[in-house]
Computed example of a mutant assay.
Amino acid sequence: MLFVAGALAVLSGLFYAAAHHEIGSFGVTMCQYGSTFCDNPSWVFVGAILAALWGTFVSIR
Rank of each mutant, 00 (worst) to 15 (best):
M1G: 01
M1K: 04
L2C: 08
L2P: 06
L2A: 09
F3V: 13
F3C: 04
V4F: 08
A5N: 02
A7K: 10
A7M: 14
L8K: 07
L8R: 07
L8V: 07
A9W: 11
A9N: 08
V10Y: 11
V10K: 02
L11S: 08
L11E: 07
S12R: 00
G13A: 09
G13L: 05
L14C: 07
A17C: 07
A19Q: 08
A19M: 05
A19S: 12
H20T: 11
E22I: 11
I23Q: 01
I23S: 03
I23W: 04
G24K: 02
S25F: 14
S25R: 09
F26Q: 06
F26S: 05
G27N: 02
G27A: 06
G27C: 04
V28F: 13
V28Q: 07
T29I: 14
T29R: 08
T29W: 13
M30T: 03
Q32F: 14
Y33S: 10
G34H: 03
G34V: 03
S35A: 13
T36M: 11
F37W: 06
D39Y: 15
D39P: 08
N40G: 10
S42D: 15
S42P: 13
W43E: 10
V44D: 06
V44T: 15
V46N: 09
V46Q: 06
G47D: 12
A48S: 14
I49K: 01
A52V: 09
A52K: 03
L53E: 10
W54S: 00
T56F: 04
T56L: 08
F57Q: 03
F57L: 09
S59Q: 05
S59A: 10
